[in-house]
């Protein structure tokens, strides 16, 4: 179990690294919080199991980056996030509704102001999400490559 909080522009390189290391994508998940959307990417490995969680925070009006060109499996997961939260993924080739009807202009999992919680309310160690620590991932990557 590894947990990395990275900034949005570091996401694509990080996912590429994981792709090179042979990880597979479990899911892409979105959580609506007061600070915006917390995107959670779960990866796992066949031969040396251990979940890698990448998380990044985007504000309400910010667009996320697609990873569907690296992991085509993310295509549907991102479409699902778009359905439920209205999060746009920059560079996604086919960002149309997947599970919800196309004429529905609502995003059911968005929380209203009253129900939104701050990140600190749902994650005990949330500082890293608001202040991403990209070096941590690089350090882990280096040690991982060394072990190999």
């Amino acid at each position: 179990m590894k947990n990395f909080c990275i900034s949005l522009d570091k996401l694509i390189p990080a996912v590429k690294e994981l792709d090179n290391l042979g990880y597979f994508l479990e899911d892409v998940c979105c959580v609506h919080v007061k600070e915006g959307f917390e995107l959670v990417y779960h990866f796992d490995h066949w031969d040396n199991p251990g979940r890698i969680t990448l998380r990044t925070l985007i504000s309400d009006d910010q667009q996320a980056e697609t990873i569907s060109h690296i992991f085509p499996g993310a295509d549907w997961h991102e479409r699902e996030c778009y359905d439920f939260f209205g999060v746009h993924f920059k560079g996604h080739k086919n960002l149309i509704p997947l599970l919800l009807p196309p004429d529905l202009n609502e995003h059911p999992l968005l929380k209203n102001k009253k129900k939104q919680k701050e990140l600190s309310h749902i994650l005990p160690d949330c500082e890293c999400v608001t202040a991403p620590q990209d070096e941590e991932f690089d350090n882990w990557l280096n040690t991982f490559n060394k072990d190999k």
């Binding site: 479990e26 899911d27 998940c29 959580v31 609506h32 959670v40 779960h42 999992l109 919680k117 309310h121 749902i122 994650l123």
Partner: peptide, 19 residues
Amino acid sequence: IGVYLVSDGSKSPYRLKLR
């Protein structure tokens, strides 16, 4: 099958993702 659960300490889940 994966269940990702986020709790805010209340009596219902804050977010539940079903993989």
